[in-house]
């Protein structure tokens, strides 16, 4: 399998990714205006927010892949879920690195237990446990099944973790409301963010695709090894 599919997919995905990344870099560093109070450091926003978006998207895919795997017992869904979890951990790591870098000059500290960052940190821990579970399960199918259960529980837990951390910081628990949001972003900043989001989403798709194919090749190698025995 594999090879033909991959070329067809790559034909449009790789160039699109390349172009959108150039556009995102241009938008973030040249096109977007310098923020009045924060200065140039605010430009990290164009990497921080899309990283967070990709991380949540990735964990959502883990959630879907996990349900489908438990239901259909098809290895393909497991490959999808575990590949997406890897990328999710990578991007949560980026969020956890860029957040403090941004926070230091603005808040004066690297870490301020901001609800969103804290939630990301806990998510990071859950999905690191996801990989430990796979590694220590002993047998791959068993590890895949247990990891799928964690993939479901972890994602369902996200809103509860976020709410609890949010309420924990405020003195009194607040009812759930859609945040009215700060002052709206000026169009040029919003546009830059959108380009960045597009580039990061394409990057996610590209990485996911490559990772899934790699895992399938791995399976084929294992199968060949078994045959030779």
């Amino acid at each position: 399998m594999g090879i033909d599919e991959r070329d067809k997919f790559r034909k449009w995905l790789a160039p699109a990714l390349f172009l959108s990344m150039l556009a995102a870099l241009y938008a973030a560093f040249v096109y977007a205006p310098t923020e009045a109070t924060q200065g140039d450091v605010q430009r990290i926003f164009y990497f921080h927010v899309p990283s967070a978006w990709v991380a949540f998207l990735a964990f959502f895919v883990v959630f879907l892949g996990s349900i489908l795997y438990l239901w259909k017992k098809d290895r393909r869904w497991d490959i999808l879920a575990s590949s997406s979890a890897e990328i999710g951990v990578l991007f949560t790591t980026m969020v956890l690195l860029t957040g403090p870098l941004w926070g230091k000059p603005i808040w004066g500290t690297y870490w301020s237990w901001d609800p969103r960052l804290t939630t990301t940190l806990i998510l990071w821990l859950i999905y690191v446990a996801y990989f430990m579970l796979r590694a220590y399960a002993g047998e791959r199918v068993k590890g895949a099944r247990m990891a799928a259960v964690l993939g479901i529980i972890g994602f369902v837990d996200v809103p509860l973790i976020y709410l609890s951390v949010l309420w924990w910081r405020s003195l009194h628990p607040l009812p759930v409301v859609v945040r009215p949001g700060g002052p709206a972003l000026p169009p040029s900043m919003l546009g830059s963010l959108m380009v960045s989001l597009l580039a990061f989403t394409l990057l996610y798709l590209y990485l996911l695709r490559e990772r899934v194919l790699l895992e399938r090749l791995n399976d084929e190698v294992e199968a060949l090894k078994q045959k030779r025995r």
Partner: peptide
Amino acid sequence: AATKTREVLLPILLFPVAVP
């Protein structure tokens, strides 16, 4: 209990999920 590490993995799995 079903893994090679037995009970060692439990707190690592449990505490992040039990944060709320």
